[in-house]
Design a protein around this nucleic acid. Structure first.
Lengths: 112, 112
DNA sequence: TCAACATACAACCAAATGGTTGTACAAGAA
DNA sequence: TTCTTGTACAACCATTTGGTTGTATGTTGA
């Protein structure tokens, strides 16, 4: 069983901030499907190599991808753990809402 | 059955951007648990009324909360649909990763 | 050895963000 | 009516963001 560590606010900030950009979401998708070097990634987007490099750095800072060295290349791989932690947070919100519905439901069906 | 509409990039941008701030996440939590007026919300945070008002506007722009008028008050309510759409997106990422694992697994267990 | 490639990183810039204060106005209370 | 409360919105400001170009450095192949 994987124990989910509680997330600090700044960590959550970084994860959602990192996902709030279409280019970065695409990098996450691609590197979850299979590893890619930074220059391979950069070839796909209509922006400079340095810009893509920065996007990868933002994702890495949020834990959404990890980098490893292979010769002169930096290989980027998507990290499903960080995705899972964001999911856990959204799930907790959904549960808060369900709890409210349950309370309202209890009120309506209450024996009086 | 609820049909999930495909999300445009700017919509997703707004949802994740809106969630990338601790104050706004707290407002989402509170208004999912129960409605609150803007001044009720503003009383809880160490910032001006106008700042809280702006946060609510960002959340409303992302569809994460909805506002209704009640006399001179604006009542804010969390919207679980937007949460669900963000969840659907993260789920799709997890599936991309699972598909990769399945492919790797198939390679390893392949008859040769 | 040397040229080409992959990356890192600094400096710079425009636009967006997250806060402030101030003003205006509608709705309730006295 | 008049005072107070709740909201809207504009103007302003510092910081962050997302892009650029330029320079430096390590790695590979000929």
């Amino acid at each position: 069983m994987v124990v989910q560590e509680a997330l600090s606010d700044p960590e959550v900030d970084r994860i959602f901030r990192a996902l709030a950009d279409a280019t970065r979401r695409d990098i996450v998708r691609r590197t979850l499907a299979g590893e890619a070097s930074i220059s391979e990634l950069a070839a796909s987007y209509d922006m400079s190599f340095a810009a893509v490099q920065k996007h990868v750095a933002v994702l890495e800072g949020a834990g959404l991808v990890v980098k490893r060295s292979h010769g002169r290349e930096r290989i980027v791989r998507g990290n499903p753990d960080a995705i899972g932690r964001a999911q856990a947070l959204l799930d907790s919100y959904e549960q808060i809402w369900r709890a409210r519905i349950d309370r309202l439901d209890a009120l309506l069906t209450e024996d009086d």
